[in-house]
Design a protein around this nucleic acid. Structure first.
Lengths: 332, 332
DNA sequence: GTGATTTGCGAAACCGCTTTCGCTTCCCCT
DNA sequence: AGGGGAAGCGAAAGCGGTTTCGCAAATCAC
């Protein structure tokens, strides 16, 4: 153990230069001859010097930490974005300070905002829930960059990175069409849910472009497995010759699959099934075979992009969408 | 906007006391008359003063941030622990700095450790994977408290909070017995996987205590859905009158369920199914009906406890287990 | 009432680094 | 050769708190 931590002045002394020179040499700032610079660097290494990050943050007035505001951190989607962003930021020496609205209840976000400002955070990530409602705009409440993730921003000028629900819908249909399906139905969640709406819309569009129409009117219901069962039961009764079902989520897909199989139909032989969420990857992580064919909405990509854009200071206003991709498995 | 941020000296000046008095008054340290203390407090509030957390951290030498070491942050279980711990810490004004071993590959953890020390972190949380292998001990590599989460520690003296796999096994069987099942089988993952082993062991124990034995030898395989299908198929052929299956994970359970239903058995009428993981809660979050009856291993509890014990300085050596609980749904 | 404590507060050092500013020196032009 | 500008470096002023220490006044013991 090197024992007592060595400081920049130790390095300066050992290198025979002034404190300020040492600082500049190591930081690459200001005008310092390459010779001195190198010399300082070498002595610093030799002594095993590391900047005291606290002192540095204090002097610079920037904390190297990013504030994260979540609506509900226990939401599984939020978690994915959070974890990937945190990983990305951690790799770049940035800490995160998380404020979950749920923890505060009515304590008002204002308090959290003040806390974050007191911490002199360098930026803010707001993670929303994409689906049901717009997250309020925090952009003007901070004097540091704010970037939204996985949310429909209240103010379209806010810098936002989120899933592309239209593209998700189109992609699902595109995949089903490419496997030769023509009598396609769509079972999805609440009609008020924006994600559900847009996916249905995107899907309908592509279907129309292909000169087709839904084999049955789109059924809106819940995000849950049981709704999948119920909707599928009704659907099979109504349109027995359906040959593919686009399920609004993997959970719905699970319910649908059970009913379809129970009805004696082969999957995907008789009826192809495709979901959305890549639920299994949320569970398994390791690559390998999967069960339900699905659309990955790109949550991890959102987390990565949001972290990187914040660090790079790329805050171009407006919404940027990540591209979804098909994860092929056994059901389509 | 109050414009230029106000500092402690502003408060001191406004209150007509010295800087040091103001500091002590607000911190509750040292001897200050209750009158002055209150007076300073009031003026501070009036001015809307907040400590500059950076300056404070610097002066105190403690960063108010916790280092987190993960083996693979993208693992879904890790994510849950991470997110809950982060939420808990955030509520207490602590930031987290995450180092994911995957990001660093062979860059060696040593580097991360040095980084964390340079950051003057106040403590470390090591999140493991519980199952396959022991995470190396970091306790002695930091001069701050280290606490392990969801892992089998290399050194039993390390402070650790993790899932109780024996109890999980016992609980699963206990639930099946309480619903009148007697011919119970167990399909689970790799025989080398410690979690799988212990669950099987715990389950077998309780079964024995009840004077029963497995309806078929425990089948070890993989954590995957497909293995569930395969194992269930074999099981049904071998022991047609089985009346309950304890599945080593929800993923396995899903595969098992499909096969059982396809074989024309009612679930849970003919055969009850119970899994482990509470997979659906990892997906849904919102409470409400579920599909697969399962055991929740208590990941969130682990995250919470680990955060709180670290903050409270409760570092009693040894492993502490969180209690699993049954989540009743449609299959048992 | 006198000496010994205790109480309440302020002066000032300090945490370790960044950054401005000014002073030499050196180089380049004309 | 002389003057202007740039290059290289150091002194010192912060950054905004915390904390040690000392001193005066108030309190206590007897």
């Amino acid at each position: 153990m090197a024992d007592s931590v060595i400081t920049l002045s130790d390095v300066a002394a050992a290198a025979g230069v002034s404190l300020s020179t040492a600082s500049k040499a190591l930081n690459g700032t200001d005008r310092i001859s390459e010779a001195t610079r190198e010399h300082v660097r070498v002595t610093a290494d030799r002594l095993g010097f590391r900047h005291n990050a606290l002192a540095r943050s204090f002097a610079r007035g920037r904390s190297q930490t990013i504030g994260v505001l979540t609506h509900r951190a226990s939401n599984p989607f939020t978690r994915v974005v959070l974890a990937t962003a945190a990983t990305e930021l951690g790799a770049k020496e940035r800490a995160i300070l998380l404020y979950d609205a749920r923890m505060e209840e009515q304590h008002d976000v204002t308090e959290s905002i003040l806390q974050l400002r007191a911490r002199r955070i360098d930026g803010v990530i707001v993670i929303g829930t994409s689906t049901s409602f717009r997250t309020p705009s925090f952009t003007s409440r901070f004097d540091v960059p704010v970037i939204n993730a996985f949310t429909v921003p209240e103010d379209p000028q806010d810098t936002t990175i989120t899933a592309d629900d239209y593209a998700i819908g189109r992609l699902a249909i595109s995949h089903l069409l490419s496997t030769g399906r023509r009598r396609i139905a769509h079972l999805t969640a609440e009609p008020h849910d924006m994600a559900a709406q847009r996916r249905a819309e995107g899907a309908g569009q592509l279907l129309a472009e292909a000169g087709l129409q839904w084999a049955a009117p789109v059924r809106f219901g819940r995000w849950r497995e049981e709704w999948g069962e119920q909707a599928a039961t009704e659907l099979l009764a109504e349109v027995p010759d359906v040959d593919a079902i686009f399920c609004g989520s993997d959970a719905i897909g699970r319910g649908v699959e059970r009913v379809v199989r129970a009805a004696g139909r082969q999957v995907p032989g008789d009826i192809a099934l495709i979901g959305v969420d890549n639920w299994e990857s949320l569970m398994h992580d390791q690559r390998g075979t999967r069960h339900l064919t699905t659309i990955d909405v790109g949550l991890e990509e959102i987390g990565r992009r949001v972290a990187n854009r914040l660090l790079e200071g790329d805050l171009e206003p407006g919404t940027q969408y990540v591209e979804p991709h098909v994860v092929i498995a056994d059901t389509a």
